[in-house]
């Protein structure tokens, strides 16, 4: 579903991704772990199409199509979703207005009709209830004044509402309390499907005990330095990244 080939990216002339190669199959949950500053968020931004990063080499294929040349909104319409590590506050934009604009923009690009207002409200409420997001929060401006955990839940709400096929989650677990973590993990698990894949970026084994991954990849200094099964996550939890840092230096 998602295939990243020898991806190099830099910002202001500073190389950050130095040859990332990674494939995620339909139905797969892949986890990426790695030390701070290793380039995990950068990878997620490049996949989603943030244009401050310059891709100097490599490809990102979604369903076999190179998406590097197209705008972020078109990538979203093709079924790509990024849950941000730091969701942004947008003052003056009502959450519901935003959700509807986003959903309808995606539908329009796919040649679908606008959602009926009643259906829209019903869908949002259904997902919000599952994620423990109050109606009052939905009435506020997007993410404005939300706690860290509330913002993360709002990302998952969007994911559940838009029903993307390729979901990239950047540290969705950080800042969540134990209950919220479980709720969010359930939200993700409920979306697991044969034709949907996840790329879950995290620092903690804890999330991966709720969302059990099929594959685990270790990123260090802008590269995937090791890949394995779920057991790799426990290994990292016990030993840390010291070994991999040494490998990169070598």
């Amino acid at each position: 579903m998602l295939e990243i080939r020898n991806l190099h990216a830099e910002i202001d002339g500073k190389p950050i991704l130095k040859g990332v190669t990674l494939a995620v199959k339909p139905g797969e949950v892949a986890a990426i772990m790695g030390p701070n500053g290793s380039g995990k968020s950068t990878l997620s931004y490049v996949i989603a199409g943030k244009d401050e990063y310059e891709v100097t080499k490599g490809e990102v294929l979604l369903d076999g199509e190179n998406i590097l040349g197209i705008d972020p909104d078109q990538r979203a319409a093709k079924g790509l979703f990024l849950a941000f590590q730091y969701p942004l506050e947008i003052p003056g934009v009502a959450t519901m207005t935003f959700l509807k604009a986003a959903l309808n923009a995606q539908r329009k690009k796919r040649g679908e009709e606008e959602i009926a207002p009643a259906d829209f409200i019903r869908s949002v409420n259904r997902v919000a209830d599952k994620l423990g997001i109050s109606r009052e929060m939905l009435r506020r401006a997007l993410n404005v004044g939300f706690s860290g955990g509330e913002k993360k839940r709002m990302e998952i709400l969007q994911m559940a509402l838009f029903e993307p096929r390729m979901c990239v989650l950047d540290e969705t677990d950080s800042g969540l309390d134990i209950d919220a973590l479980r709720i969010v993990a359930e939200g993700v698990n409920a979306l697991r499907a044969k034709d949907r894949a996840f790329l879950v970026i995290t620092h903690y084994q804890r999330l991966l005990s709720h969302i059990v991954p099929d594959t685990v990849h270790v990123m260090a200094d802008g590269r995937i330095v090791k890949s394995g099964g779920p057991e790799l996550a426990s290994e990292l939890e016990a030993k840390g990244y010291a070994d991999f840092a040494a490998q990169t230096a070598a």
């Binding site: 989603a48 199409g49 943030k50 909104d73 935003f98 995606q106």
Partner: peptide, 17 residues
């Protein structure tokens, strides 16, 4: 970028802001 990553085209995202 946040708005665009949610499928909203640039012009419309600008208009919202």
């Amino acid at each position: 970028f946040y708005l665009m990553a949610r499928g909203i085209p640039r012009r419309e995202a600008q208009a919202i802001l």
